[in-house]
Design a protein around this nucleic acid. Structure first.
Lengths: 334, 334
DNA sequence: TATTCTTGTCGAAACGTTTCGATAGAGATT
DNA sequence: AATCTCTATCGAAACGTTTCGACAAGAATA
């Protein structure tokens, strides 16, 4: 591999001149620049990232902190990841996956100690997430995908639950429904302050009230059995209910089973809309599900973009970006 | 951050002594070692990976090369990735995601040029994959997840299609089925030499012959519509067919629709087994699907482990590891 | 007793960058 | 004509490691 020394020799200049020519940090005559450019091309020069990092510039490596336990997202996560990696690459950064137990702050400390990462993307944020405080105390650049109570104070990207709720309920109302059920994620997730469980509930209930839609909310563990139970009791309690909103992928099969166990059929007797699932999944069902697609690709892309903006000093380190889901009409609603 | 100099000073020895004490590359007296250990503990010392890399040792960063286009796996990929990252971490490596268009060899060359990666994991291998030749010519350590014709010559991890086929057909025969249909992936994937499409077909047909099961194989594009068409014609052509093997997640909904369009029901009139899909997905269906679970977590784990073995010189750079899927009995077979 | 080998340690060079301070020459200001 | 300011360039130091060669002091060998 060619080094900066080889370039300097070939262009007949000092090493530092080459460095300045590349970075533009000091004026270099056009003529010398040209010779340098040529030498670089001829020798296929690529700066060594390690050396650059050692000399004090960043590593251009970003760490994406995944929760090792919470595999709830599934299908959706891979879109986020691959899109994030693409974004990083397009801006000449690398993305590495951190699956350590980052909630254990001493583990997190170890991760940041080796200075390998220029910045972090934090996912699966819970209420009063300690990691947020920790990273910000250390003065490390990071962005959050998700939200917690103090998320406003940091740079974050999240689903626009309010717009998502408005969009889906507008659709519901337009179709003439007046009574809706909402099957949320688990009570446990809600109590832990998991963003979607909390924010979607609030936004839906708020919007429903404004639109004059009656909404009955239930929590549900992410399992088939629980889905069936919850669906059955919800429907028994509300005989006039004509549309069901579900934000719980794993419970969906059970919910459908519960519905048909009551002798109802989708969409004839009951419309069903899945909230924040992936299109791939929604299309697996029969009938295919009307759903609000989770903007996972956008979350990944923006997460990285914002982080890079901070790193390159182009943006202040605060402010939220909200991205709504997209409504896809399937066969499960009338 | 504490550097090796700080340790040396505090322990009252030379920098090089500390280095040798840590690496064990030269004998150091137990007493000095103890002082050094203590100093390290007191100062929370962590070697700077950049400096180590510059000095010629590796970066301890592994690159996982994903195909930016082929998002076919979906649910399964995230398991593989997260498990791979875990494995890397457990051996003190980092895993970074490369989503560049690595089939474009000049892009691949650029990736390897910056020496950031100690080794690579290559996925989604096709027949006579150029990247394999390229990397091996460059003498870079890598492992393959998947297979191509010359895969034997390199270190690789793949699904054990033979065992998977034997296992699933043994189950089929035991249940008394004598005529089976196999809905493969697309003809295009097959012609491109995509491992699963090629190897599963061969293994199934071979095993079926040996077991005396009649097997009709069809290709199918990964879409709902195509699934329906293929299922209908396959079943029309083989009225005695009593079990359907499907290795095509995206076509599944269509296939099920086709089956019921013919007035058949699963599993009463026809058993259905999904090959190499994820359990999460299989459980989404109603009835839940009997399936051979793809060993994605193991593939990810072993991929990284093998690569590290090579890097640390503990293994020669060739040989295949095959991992069979796991049969899960659902409600779709009798 | 003189020589070689081993063991434990040190100092310095090397890895490939970036950046600081110095400087030579050209042009502008007195 | 002397001074000042730019502009373009150079050389050297620094970043934090690893490793090579040197070298004492003691052990083993002759």
């Amino acid at each position: 591999m060619a080094t900066i020394k080889d370039i300097a020799k070939r262009a007949g200049v000092a090493v530092s001149t080459v460095s300045y020519a590349i970075s533009g940090n000091r004026p270099i005559s056009e003529e010398v620049k040209k010779r340098i450019r040529q030498a670089m091309a001829e020798l296929d020069y690529q700066p060594n990232p390690m050396a650059r990092a050692l000399a004090g510039k960043g590593t251009r490596i970003l760490g994406l902190i995944l929760d090792p336990l919470d595999r709830s997202l599934g299908i959706t996560e891979i879109d986020l990841l691959s899109r994030a990696a693409e974004a990083a690459r397009s801006m000449n950064y690398h993305l590495t996956l951190l699956t350590d137990d980052s909630r254990n702050l001493s583990v997190l400390e170890e991760i940041i100690a080796d200075k390998l990462f220029d910045g972090f993307i934090l996912m699966e944020i819970h209420k009063e997430d300690e990691r947020v405080r920790f990273l910000s105390e250390k003065g490390l650049p990071f962005v959050i995908i998700g939200r917690d109570d103090r998320t406003q104070d940091f740079r974050s990207i999240d689903i626009d639950f309010q717009k998502t709720a408005e969009q889906v309920l507008a659709h519901v109302k337009e179709k003439g429904h007046r009574e809706a059920g909402f099957i949320n994620q688990s009570l446990n997730a809600f109590n832990r302050g998991y963003g979607p469980a909390v924010a979607m509930k609030a936004s839906l209930e708020d919007t429903a009230r404004r639109l004059g839609i009656k909404l009955d909310t239930r929590f549900c563990l992410p399992s088939r059995e629980e889905g069936e139970n919850v669906a059955v009791t919800l429907l028994r309690d509300n005989p006039a209910l004509s549309v069901l909103l579900v934000m719980n992928d794993q419970a969906l099969p059970g919910i459908l089973k519960g519905i048909s166990a009551l002798g109802l059929s989708v969409p004839k007797d009951l419309s069903l809309i899945s909230l924040l699932s992936s299109s791939k999944l929604a299309e697996m069902f029969h009938p295919s599900l009307t759903h609000m697609e989770i903007p996972s690709r956008e979350l990944g892309w923006h997460g990285v973009c914002r982080l890079v903006e901070i790193l390159e000093g182009r943006q202040e380190n605060r402010g939220m970006i909200l991205i709504p889901g997209t409504l896809h009409i399937g066969e499960s609603t009338i």
